[in-house]
Nucleic acid binder design. Structure first.
Lengths: 198, 198
DNA sequence: GGCTAGGTATACAGACCTGTGAAGTCAAGG
DNA sequence: CCTTGACTTCACAGGTCTGTATACCTAGCC
């Protein structure tokens, strides 16, 4: 009955079992894909029964949303931390998402969890879709905000260009195996920004 | 003698039933995702029995590979056609993939079939993966070739940047709903190219 | 003591999955 | 006439999927 899929799943107020479930599900959803992983597997690998999984997360979709939300939060926290470190250096603040890309991607060959989840969730009304769309819009709006603060011309346009460069770098890295796609694209972003600051 | 492409599934030498199966599978794989579509559904929607599907394509994976290969071929054909139309206009030739993006994407909100398929095929040895990787590498190498012909500086680097812009535009369009992501990113590509031509 | 939260174990429902086997229909072409 | 290719019908094997039900255990807390 209770579809408590609302964001009541703050990672820090989860029971020990739930924390393990979420950790395992995150790993498996990312590495193998959402449809390819069953709740039986998640429960077994978490050392927990399926009953517990359903008591804590309500449904597979509920668990999926929790996975996307915690990943989103981790991304935003990382960016916020580096924005703080960049302080008032306006140009550098704009490029923070490019700067963190290498460490965010690590050596994974599975690309962006949000883009991947998007591929598996075709229904626009799916609760997971909203987390995905919000994540990308947040990044675009972050670019826009920092560009405006930096006094760049046409921030609307440039925000979309930087978002595209950013997402494209992840794709190039994951699919084509361009090992330094992040640095290469970082340079392109810097060039576009420089042009908008003249 | 036939070429060593292994793919005996050239679209023009398929039986009528097989053609229908491939058309239906392409639509369903793209719209709903690969794992989300069963062979029963594909057979039923094609007005064909499952037996026929397996006789023609061998397995679901075989059908999937045929889907990816025909899509890849259609993309390459479209680009080749527009490259011909651009003739010797070197700068324009470089940007052809951006020029065709609006019509290629249409009004679909499902993004790139290769990126989506990549998300559902985590195993590096999967035959479908190789089609996907080849498609993206082909585009990068096309950029590289045209950039070299145009006399641009550092074509290695710029090819990756253009590839990233291109893939990122598709993502921005599909997920964030940036309706003119293609045009916006086309402009960025033009700017980067102009800088490399000075 | 008694209550509650957070589990455990096991079985089950009902649907869906890929893939195969055996036998039959029907039309075109040598 | 007879073979071949394309396709049909339909049953079935052997799994896996999400989700639920029943019954029990255990530690902490009031």
């Amino acid at each position: 009955m209770s579809h408590a899929t609302g964001g009541a799943t703050r990672a820090d107020q989860l029971t020990p079992g739930a924390r393990r479930i979420l950790a395992v599900a995150s790993e498996l959803f990312y590495r193998r894909g959402i449809h390819a992983v069953g709740v039986d597997t998640i429960a077994a690998e978490s050392g927990v029964t399926k009953r517990t999984l359903y008591d804590r997360f309500g449904s597979k979709d509920g668990l999926l949303v929790a996975y996307l939300e915690t990943r989103d939060q981790r991304w935003r926290d990382l960016i916020a931390e580096r924005l703080d470190a960049a302080k008032g250096d306006a140009a550098r603040r704009v490029l923070v998402p490019f700067e963190v890309l290498p460490e965010w991607l690590g050596d994974s060959d599975r690309g962006c969890s949000f883009i991947n989840a998007f591929a598996e969730l075709p229904e626009p009304e799916h609760p997971g879709r909203q987390v995905i769309v919000a994540e990308k819009k947040w990044l675009r709006d972050l670019f826009h905000h920092e560009l405006t603060a930096a006094g760049a011309t046409d921030p609307d346009r440039l925000a979309v260009q930087l978002l595209s460069l950013h997402e494209g770098a992840i794709v190039s890295f994951a699919i084509v195996g361009e090992t330094d796609a992040a640095a290469t694209v970082h340079a392109a972003a810097r060039a576009l920004l420089a042009e908008a600051m003249r």
